[in-house]
Amino acid sequence: MALYRDVGVVLRVHKLGEADRIVTLLTRRRGKLRAVAKGVRRTRSRWGARLEPFNHVDVQCYTGRSLDVVTQAQTLDAFGAGIVSDYARYTAGCAMLETADRLVAEEGEPALRLYLLLVGAVRALADGERDPSLVLDAFLLRAMSHAGWAPAITDCARCAAPGPHRAFSVAGGGAVCARCRPPGSVVPSSETFALLDALLHGDWHTADAATAPTRRDTSGLVAAHLQYHLERQLRSLPLVERRATPAPPVVTGPG
């Protein structure tokens, strides 16, 4: 029996038998990991609540014949407590977990950068300081960048002509110049291109200042680009609540 430890974020859980669960985690060293947690659905289980989606945990497992088995679990960050009580944060978080699960196709495939990105994004959701839809879109753009699918935003995706360009083609890879523009391209506003660039590079001053229509348009482009390259729909994305956090009122002096 080979014991090992790793840290990871719980992506999803499935019932197994009367009292067990199959837990899927994105871990720091082993990439995606599926393991059986025995007895965690019993009311007397001491650590079953730790193996819930969004939680960041330290697990000890041993290698089994078909699935590994969890023998210990310790909570590092109980992110779920700050997410599941808010619908907008919960639905955005579900889309993050599903995306991470889809991007790592094979168990055991190294995914350190995606793991670190997911931990940071889930922490930002749990903190509740930013619009959940902005956190989600920033995560999706950066996750696609790690996968090699980041949309072109300034230079033309086809000929690399320097921009800015007016058109955007999901099938074409992002921003396209007038010469390369394929049929079916859309023409987003310059503010939408600016928000895409801000989310990809972490410019939160620009992102937080974006208007609600700009955020909606940006979210639509990000979702379409992701699902085109995944070649499948994400079940959680249509449920995401897209709401813009209102800007703070401007306080002016007397007179």
Rank of each mutant, 00 (worst) to 15 (best):
L125S: 09
A126H: 06
D127I: 05
D127M: 13
G128M: 02
G128N: 06
G128Q: 06
G128S: 07
G128C: 09
G128V: 08
E129K: 12
E129Y: 00
R130H: 14
D131V: 08
P132F: 07
S133F: 09
S133P: 04
S133V: 14
L134I: 06
L134G: 00
L134V: 08
L134E: 01
V135F: 08
L136W: 03
L136S: 00
D137T: 00
D137R: 06
A138P: 04
F139Y: 14
L140D: 06
L140M: 04
L140T: 05
L141F: 08
A143H: 01
M144V: 00
S145C: 04
S145V: 03
H146A: 10
H146M: 10
H146K: 09
A147F: 04
G148E: 09
W149V: 04
A150M: 03
A150E: 14
A150V: 08
A150P: 11
A150G: 10
A150K: 02
P151M: 14
P151S: 15
P151K: 06
P151A: 12
A152D: 04
A152E: 03
A152Y: 11
I153Y: 05
I153K: 10
T154K: 01
C156N: 08
C156D: 10
C156F: 00
C156Q: 00
A157W: 00
A157Q: 06
A157I: 07
A157F: 03
A157C: 09
C159H: 01
C159Q: 08
A160H: 14
A161Y: 02
P162C: 10
P162D: 13
P162K: 13
G163K: 05
G163R: 03
G163V: 04
P164A: 04
H165I: 07
H165N: 11
R166H: 11
R166M: 06
A167M: 14
F168N: 02
F168C: 02
S169T: 12
A171R: 11
G172T: 11
G172A: 11
G173Y: 00
G173H: 07
G173F: 03
G174T: 02
G174M: 01
A175W: 04
V176H: 01
A178I: 10
A178T: 14
A178N: 10
R179V: 14
R179W: 09
R179L: 14
C180T: 03
R181G: 07
P183K: 08
P183I: 09
G184Y: 04
G184I: 12
S185D: 07
V186G: 06
V186A: 13
V186W: 03
P188Q: 05
P188F: 07
P188C: 02
S189W: 01
E191N: 02
E191R: 00
A194K: 12
L196V: 08
D197R: 15
A198Q: 04
L200M: 13
L200I: 09
H201I: 07
G202F: 10
G202V: 10
D203P: 13
D203G: 02
W204Y: 11
H205E: 13
H205C: 10
H205D: 12
T206L: 12
T206N: 01
A207W: 06
D208P: 09
D208E: 15
D208K: 15
A209D: 14
A210M: 07
A210Q: 03
